[in-house]
Design a protein around this nucleic acid. Sequence first.
RNA 1: GGCCCGAUGGCGGAGUGGUGACGCAGAGGACUGCAAAUCCUCGCACGGGGGUUCGAUUCCCCCUCGGGCCUCCA
Length: 440
Amino acid sequence: MSELRLYDAMAREKRDFVPADPGRVTMYVCGPTVYGRAHVGNFRPEVVFDVLGRVLRHRFGANALVHARNITDVDDKIMAAAEREGVAPSAVASRYEAAYAEDAAALGVVPPTLAPRATEHIGQMIALIERLIAAGHAYEAAGHALFHVPSDPDYGVLSRRDREAMLAGARVEVAPYKRDPADFVLWKPSAPGVIGWESPWGRGRPGWHLECSAMIGAHLGETIDIHGGGIDLQFPHHENELAQSRCAHRGVPLARYWLHNGFLNMGEMAKMSKSLGNVATVPELLAAGHRGETIRLALLSAQYRQPLAWTEALLVQSKATLDRLYRAAGDAPSAEPDAGVLDALDDDLNTPLALARLAAIEDAGGIRASAALLGLLGGSADGWFQGGAEDAGAIEAAIVARLDARKRRDFAEADRIRADLAEHGILLEDGAGGTTWRRA
RNA sequence: GGCCCGAUGGCGGAGUGGUGACGCAGAGGACUGCAAAUCCUCGCACGGGGGUUCGAUUCCCCCUCGGGCCUCCA
């Protein structure tokens, strides 16, 4: 077996993946702020780290992985949405948390081991701030608690930001109560009537970066193996998270490997969406006739760090690829995964190469087992080709009528029946064992 | 403006200092009443300009274009 190698943003190179404890591999991926329906791009990390989870379980054992993905359920955008709708922020949060789970499930994502919510860890967050203040890394000012960036000589190691350049390019006015322009909020005051919790610094709510540090500490430990998220989160979110945790934990690093997925390039879709006044969400894509597994394959068609051009054509192509794979896999039970596919995934999750090798596998059981590492081909071939079609009985009847016509050599009638079915999205195939049908 | 990443055939996308995977689409053939599926064959692409080198798509520099970040966007 080859070594699993992952590109670590901290080292800026691929490194052999060696967990601190092979019996308990810990992975934390930044999850959604639940203020609205997430679009497909939001699910790239979800699918990518789901594949990584599958690879890790294959390598270290089915129960060896602890995979946490947070839900940010307190945030100004949630409050704004609640305000608009005249409902409680918790109502907005729980609605979109459910929607997120539903969309992720449609893409074949295994629910993470843990899905902690920010609002359920306020106590831990307050305790973390107190530790930071006691250690001289944070201070209180005007009802806020702030992290003092100059107190941390290692600040910036992850994103390698040049402090001067950062300040020069700052687009946002510096709040007057900050001791240093780079200081960031750990806790901020809540006005009466809006969501908030009592704290040593008055009634308020946590800053964005704090929850991840607190929940990682509470559920996974001081140092985790893998920390993941979108490339946009590298700075400031992960940098700040890292600084908070390291400073609160005597300099112990927060994560051993930092992974960031690239963005979907929404060029064409964005244009399409713009004219429709919305963005491409999973339910919209499903309603347009694309299946979750098709969307999943499309999301895996580029290596996760690369940008991926997201287009309608990509979905059409992904569907055709699945047709072929399901046909090749048939009803074979899962066997052993292919070494070539494993090697490709071991090389920093090279999913396009894995897909290429998957296409070359001869043995059906090997196809299924290998596809399972990618979270594909989870269903039966019949389910893929015929599932969801309405009125299978009528289709069967039409097939019988067509066979009868063919026996009479009335090919005009036979072709008319076939064309009629095709108009309803049903394709016929005359094989050696008789005529079968499938959805277009 | 600063920092960072990307640019490969019609499309998606691997990979590499020395004859450029794979998939989808397309073309031709076999098969079929005709199709579909399957099998065989084919298309000969590394953004532009310099440089290093015996040789660059691969390394270096510049340019162009696209994307990300620059305090709460996956």
